[in-house]
Each structure stands twice: as structure tokens, then as C-alpha cells.
Amino acid sequence: MEKSLAHRKIEEKFPQAVLDSHAQHGDETLILRKEAILDVARLLKEDSELQFNFLMDITAVDYLGRQPRFEIVYHFMSLPFNRRLRIKLQSDDLYPTVKSLTPLWKTANWLERECFDLYGIRFEGHPNLTRIMLYEGFEGHPLRKDYPKTKRQPLIGPQN
């Protein structure tokens, strides 16, 4: 597929940022260098020809046994142009650290907290990076593939 306008603009402005790309069903996915995310997101949001003004989701994938192990996935949408763009960052750290998008989107606050809670991804610059789904005192990040399937951490009642 032909490179999308967003792809071309990112390459033009940040020549080192894009590591890889692919497209499926008309939607493009870019794999970026981890450090570039905040600048690229700002470009996507503020460029008048792109206007990706809607941050739909932030999530992560744990490919246990692969290198790099973690992928952090962003879904952007441009409401004015009805375009979508998926951006992935990769990291092999045990606790990957990426820049927070909270300066650009308020919704990033809760999305990043969820991603931190369940996968243990650290978001640099987040104002309140605490658990959002699980409770205080919960140990570990349960959507990681190495979290024991049968491990239970009840607040009250019998342990296992």
C-alpha cells in the first residue's frame, strides 16, 4: 500500500523515527522508535492536514519469549478526516518506560494507568501513575504472560 499522508509527514519531520510499517484493511501501522512518541503524537494532533484529535486507546502486548518482548500500542483517530493510525513501540526492558501523552490528551491519563496496572509499563511524566483497575497492595501485573494463571490475591477470604 502507498504510504499514508501521516506516514510521509512523520518521515519528513523525524527521519529516524519510523522503524517499520505495514497496512491491513486500509489502516496503517507504524512501528516507531520509543523515544519519538511524544513528538510524533504532537505532530499527528496538531498538523492541520492530519488532525488526529482522538486518542482511542493505549494498550500493550506481551510477547513472552520474543525479542523485543513488549509492544505498546496506540490507536489514533482523526475525526475531521475519518482516518485511523496505529502506532507501536517496542521494548525489551522488564519495565519499559515511555513518555506519557497526558500533555496532549487528558484521556491518556486513565489509559496509561490501565496499561501500567495490567502490564507494568511506566509512563514518564504521568501526573498520577497508580493502579486503576486493581487494588492497592496487588502484586505484579496480571496481563503479563508470566503472571501465574492460578495466582489469587484476594483482599478478604481464604488465600487460594
Binding site: 483497575m133 486493581l134 496480571p142 503472571y147 489469587r152 490475591q153 484476594p154 478478604i156 477470604g157 481464604p158
Partner: peptide, 12 residues
């Protein structure tokens, strides 16, 4: 049967 769900309310 997972990390989040209580396995029956009769545990408490």
C-alpha cells in the same frame, strides 16, 4: 477463573 474474580461468594 482468573486473577480478578472471586471464586464464589461463599468464600466470604
Amino acid at each position: 477463573d482468573n486473577y480478578a474474580t472471586m471464586q464464589g461468594i461463599d468464600t466470604v
